[in-house]
Computed example of a mutant assay.
Amino acid sequence: MAPIFKADDSFDRSLFKGASCAFGVFDGVHCGHRFLLSCAQQTAAENGGRSIALTFDIDPDEMFNADRLRKLMSNDERLEMLTQTGVDAVVALPFTKDFAASSPEEFLDRTFGGHVPAHLHVGSDFRFGAKAAGTVPDLKAWANSHGMVVDAHDLKSEDGAPITATRIRKLLAAGEIVKANHLLGRPYFMTGIVKPGRGEGADMGIRTANLVVGDQLRPLGDGVYAAYADVEGKRYKAAVNVGIAASFADRAIATCEVHILDFDGDIYDQYMKVEFIEWLRPMRKFDDIQELIATIQGNIDWVRKNL
């Protein structure tokens, strides 16, 4: 696993010298990101330098679009996943208001501090500096005068459409979990701490673990999903309700309720990871409690037979 460096004032930027960097936010660390990181590893191997994932400690949209932001993972999860991609190091730039206000040239000068990498790999839509004013041509012009090679890549899927975190978020919002997982190259997951819920599940004989997930980390559309739950180091099949429980809307809050198959332990206040595999049905209101129980049991049976 690669080490993580925070590029604050104490950071030795000579780490960049002769390196090949892939630069981006990397929310989701999706297939497009992994291609970019593999390109950095390839040029590093060819030139004998380090391969570095260069990113920010937070998603810049947390500063500018916090009320609308729906991230694919937390910042800690993003940095941790980057360490597992095969690069030699992960460097996280502190994204502050002062840094965000830098002109494109100042942005690059402050990022590298005079120690310019040999290669820099970015997406073809890469923007940088105050108000995202810097473009790839600007980056290449700066690089030419500093002895750095810039490789801008089109990150596209088999259908020719770009692989972006925004595209994946839209798929998740629509419940298109299989398509989203294909672009991610892995199952989309949510994590959180298990807290006591409303109690209706237990009353119906269908216990659920209730995850506390903030709005920023919940891009997935409301509905019922087939999933896997990682509990105490073991992986279990699960049927998961995401969003407002329509039959209890008068007293429900947006949540993630996880029925874990063949599990009956007490996991309150414990961390849980849930990987989403299939969309099963939309949320709807049931007038009859027996119909609700039968439908939930049908969802559980589907999960048991098909996952």
Score class of each variant (00 low, 15 high):
residue 208 T to Q: 00
residue 216 Q to H: 11
residue 230 D to K: 13
residue 13 R to P: 06
residue 113 G to W: 02
residue 164 T to N: 05
residue 199 G to D: 01
residue 160 G to P: 05
residue 162 P to H: 11
residue 260 I to G: 02
residue 297 Q to S: 15
residue 73 M to L: 07
residue 193 I to H: 05
residue 247 S to T: 15
residue 291 E to R: 13
residue 145 S to M: 13
residue 34 R to V: 03
residue 28 G to R: 08
residue 301 D to Q: 14
residue 265 G to N: 07
residue 181 N to M: 06
residue 270 Q to K: 15
residue 269 D to L: 13
residue 148 M to P: 03
residue 48 G to D: 08
residue 76 D to M: 05
residue 121 H to V: 03
residue 162 P to F: 11
residue 221 G to S: 04
residue 88 D to S: 13
residue 157 S to M: 11
residue 96 T to R: 14
residue 175 G to T: 01
residue 142 W to G: 02
residue 256 C to P: 00
residue 169 R to L: 05
residue 227 A to L: 08
residue 142 W to T: 00
residue 296 I to G: 00
residue 116 V to E: 09
residue 111 T to D: 05
residue 93 L to S: 12
residue 267 I to W: 00
residue 222 D to Y: 06
residue 297 Q to R: 15
residue 5 F to K: 09
residue 293 I to Y: 12
residue 173 A to Y: 01
residue 10 S to Y: 13
residue 34 R to N: 05
residue 131 K to V: 09
residue 106 E to V: 09
residue 213 V to Q: 10
residue 204 M to W: 10
residue 47 N to K: 14
residue 290 Q to E: 15
residue 194 V to N: 09
residue 57 D to N: 14
residue 291 E to L: 15
residue 74 S to F: 03
residue 206 I to W: 03
residue 85 T to H: 03
residue 42 Q to V: 13
residue 267 I to Q: 07
residue 158 E to N: 08
residue 64 F to G: 01
residue 129 G to E: 03
residue 145 S to H: 12
residue 300 I to R: 03
residue 5 F to R: 09
residue 35 F to M: 15
residue 173 A to P: 00
residue 117 P to L: 07
residue 282 P to Q: 05
residue 43 T to I: 07
residue 243 G to L: 02
residue 55 T to K: 10
